[in-house]
Write a protein that binds this DNA or RNA. Sequence first.
DNA 1: TTTATTTTTTAGGCTTATCTAAAAAATATT
DNA 2: AATATTTTTTAGATAAGCCTAAAAAATAAA
Lengths: 221, 221
Amino acid sequence: MLSYTEENYLKIIFILSYPTAKEISTNDIAKNLNINAASVSDMLKKLKQKNLIDYAKYQGVSLTQEGRKIAVNIIRKHRLWETFLVNTLNFSWDEVHDIAEQLEHIQSNLLIEKLYQFLGFPKFDPHGEPIPDENGTFPETKDWICLNSCKKQQKIEVKSITDDSSDLLQHLDKISVNIGVKIEVIEKNSYDKSIDVLINDIKQCTLSKEISEKIYGVLLD
Amino acid sequence: MLSYTEENYLKIIFILSYPTAKEISTNDIAKNLNINAASVSDMLKKLKQKNLIDYAKYQGVSLTQEGRKIAVNIIRKHRLWETFLVNTLNFSWDEVHDIAEQLEHIQSNLLIEKLYQFLGFPKFDPHGEPIPDENGTFPETKDWICLNSCKKQQKIEVKSITDDSSDLLQHLDKISVNIGVKIEVIEKNSYDKSIDVLINDIKQCTLSKEISEKIYGVLLD
DNA sequence: TTTATTTTTTAGGCTTATCTAAAAAATATT
DNA sequence: AATATTTTTTAGATAAGCCTAAAAAATAAA
Ligand SMILES: [Mn+2]
Ligand SMILES: [Mn+2]
Ligand SMILES: [Mn+2]
Ligand SMILES: [Mn+2]
């Protein structure tokens, strides 16, 4: 049985390396968990000891088979709980991430099985993030592209927001961006990498790089 | 913000003193939490420091206003989650206690409000235990009596089982005792304090003291 | 009312997860 | 290639929550 802390380390290593499975630096983990790099070094030693990560001093870190399995299960639980909170309890999509951060650590396979069934075997969470199935397999998303990478005049249907922070999601609500809307690139501004877009063929606005790189969708036309 | 551990101490102090609010001993807490009495002494000092308990060395412990409020909220969450697990996710009543022990520590007032509403403002959990409302008020149960205290030929309708352990609940399933059944006392055996009973006017069996003292109900006729 | 037993507290340790400061290694710059 | 900067690790501390062993207080028994 792992501690919440250990689970959070495995989860963040997975997320930072997804989908490439590349090696992650001590500093990246430290920044993302808001802890000191020295503490991360300590924990990496411990996780290596438990055979959950591949790690050699100064060489970065990656998950072992076993570590990946645990990380994916935490992510599965997180996203199923977010789906429950929005679909069943009528939370809005910007309110659920912090609660799911807690719920993802509840230990019970039966609970997750039953929740999964109750929710109707969902494949994506309220932010469009893919929910791995009971074998750890993620639903297909390879035709999704980043809005940020679209050329002028290309148009996408939004499939996912890759950041659940309430700040961002509330901002997206304000400009009427949610899962399913169509966004067309009107202009690309090279100076600050922002883009001018048309949302659902009606509303025009400018999206900063920070925002556009978190929106993914499928190309239309 | 309290730790899970602190919350568990407050909860067990409440439960051990309910409904009398009498003083609780260090040893009682230690036995119930499966920890050493020395550890309990340490924690009591800390909880007193935080004004959550009234405590003087060697004199037993009781909850302050503030401590009681927190304890009742944990119990409310525990029982609402058990209700959710049984009513919504189709768990059986013997499977839910350990999961609720984890879920009761999830921090979010909004979550509990929404869960409460989703479940239809339940007053009792799957074991018949009263669920305090948002103000900490417990539903009325003062006409409930313990099966153990019934005289020969008295008959009750079961309202609650005051122990959620799966061992006991599975045993009760086996002898067809659940919430709502009628139990009549046929004979009281003074030697071991066991009683012979008739369940739903059909099935006769003997209940040990350990079992009969955990069954509560309302007197019939 | 002494003495014995039980309960509770204190003293001193251990583990986990964190920190700061300093050392070591890797990387970037001149 | 030598030096400066950044990244990572080690060393040494701390707080929470637990432990065992021993001391102190309360309670029960003689
Ligand atoms: Mn999330
Ligand atoms: Mn999400
Ligand atoms: Mn319970
Ligand atoms: Mn219960």
